[in-house]
Design a protein around this nucleic acid. Structure first.
Lengths: 129, 129
DNA sequence: CAAGCGACTTGCGTTTTGCAAGCGACGAAA
DNA sequence: TTTCGTCGCTTGCAAAACGCAAGTCGCTTG
């Protein structure tokens, strides 16, 4: 008899079945996790707020990352106005569950990189699935 | 009087003083953390072993990442033979301390990405500072 | 002594990044 | 009521990074 999940297909477009590799296929770049940080830790929701972060993400990259994050199911876009169309972005449960990853990164940085400072403004994010 | 660390300079070449941003400046790409994984979890040490990982890292990228990791102080290169020169790579404490980051990523992937499988071969890494 | 191997380097075409500028719909100011 | 400014993007383009293939160097092995 077959086991349940015996031949679970390797995730589409992924490089391997390794958990780490699959995470990196989604958030493995210099910008994506900063958007997640803005949403999860700094309580930001709007395009302009993301742009105002100190890292100064290029606007075309921001637009691209928001699209990818939405496509990956980590965030949701909700219009709060129709004309002109204006949206807010919210983390899904899947996206918010990256919290421990950010937490681990933060601890590592505090321990190993001199000069980093923990952001004062820590706002609990609203989650919308 | 001045406080200790009052004006700690923002880390060189970094985009901000944010811990997350500083981590991403070092490991924010699709490949770097995979070589850390190879060293830390899979017990690999040599160039050829890294190449044999299922993600099939391009050889020039591997060479580049090893250089960067060494420059960042996350790994050490040690020759075990002079002619022809052959080296093994070891994590430093700084590099090995990324363990919790990988751990958090792994847990997230297992929860949210169907089809990932936890690698069976988990070897404790040797650390050399 | 030809072939192979490990650990890279080099070339080169493709993709991604990053900077700047533009744009459409408004709201506020002059 | 033109003009200005803002917000949330899109577009163009040059520069950098990526990724594939091939080459190199110094042994080692048949």
């Amino acid at each position: 008899m077959k086991k349940a999940k015996a031949n679970a297909a390797p995730p589409e477009g992924s490089r391997s079945t390794c958990p780490i590799a699959n995470v990196l296929d989604i958030v493995g770049d210099k910008w994506t996790l900063l958007v997640v940080r803005d949403l999860l830790i700094l309580g930001k929701r709007r395009y302009g707020e993301f742009q105002n972060s100190p890292e100064a993400i290029p606007t075309n990259i921001l637009a691209d990352r928001l699209k990818r994050l939405e496509a990956a199911g980590l965030i949701r876009k909700e219009l709060y106005q129709d004309n002109p169309p204006r949206a807010e972005y919210f983390l899904t449960r899947k996206g918010a569950d990256l919290g421990p990853v950010l937490e681990a990164m933060g601890q590592w940085a505090v321990r190993h990189i001199p000069g980093v400072v923990i952001p004062e403004q820590i706002v609990p994010a609203e989650i919308r699935d």
